[in-house]
Write a protein that binds this DNA or RNA. Sequence first.
DNA 1: GCATTAACATGCC
DNA 2: GGCATGTTAATGC
Length: 257
Amino acid sequence: MPTLHLGNHRCTVTNLINIDSVKLSCKNCSLSELCLPRSLSPEDLARFEEIVTQRPPIPKGGALYRSGEPSHALYAIKSGALKSIVTTEDGEEQIVGFHMPGELVGFDGVESVHNCTVVSLERSSVCELPLKDLEFLSQKISSLHREVCTVMRREISQEQSMLLLLARRTAESRLASFLVSLSRRLGSRGFSQTDFNLVMSRHDIANYLGLAAETVSRLISKFQEAGILSVNRRRVVIRDLDALNGKVGTCSSAKSA
DNA sequence: GCATTAACATGCC
DNA sequence: GGCATGTTAATGC
């Protein structure tokens, strides 16, 4: 039986086909406690389900949408993982975010056009939430409106944290921060927060953190030597989460003025 | 193809 | 000079 790795879960292709063929139901979704409709009453959930459609699964390397395309929806990630990329004027690619199951993507739509390309890191399934329907429903359902605002505030807060990280933190602090963030996000979504697969390459991690891939490798080795992590290829086991958290706060004295 | 490691280079304090 | 990080090249999985 062929198998696919989805996060740190493994399931059969047969299972996936069965899941895909099921009529979309937020109520029965394993991520219902994390996704937008989590605070809705059964009646409002039924109205919400009417605006949601499931997109065909995106293969590894496939794009959910590309920069310049019209922005008309938000997307809730059901399974898999994706990355957001901005291409600079000189053709350089900068990764500006990784997206895990239970999270929303599509906030980069400015004046109805996306300014990011979102690419699947492994076979991914997403639910599409059309913006005009979401706006209409948010006016009718106050708890949905609050939830959308909460997600947007969280997005802005994360962007600010990332700016601070890139401006002020050492390479060691950046990598520790990245791993702690990933651990928290996976942990809050029912996955192990100390034992997981990195769905992104070292090159992607380095690009996202503004480092060289070799620096990421060196730091991973350093963390292993300190007993903080065990890493085998993309499998990460966090041995000492407190120590890893301690590395997050390490600001560069050269940059801390 | 991707990850790791070593040697060397560079910039900052 | 010491430290942090980047670049290049070699090597292994």
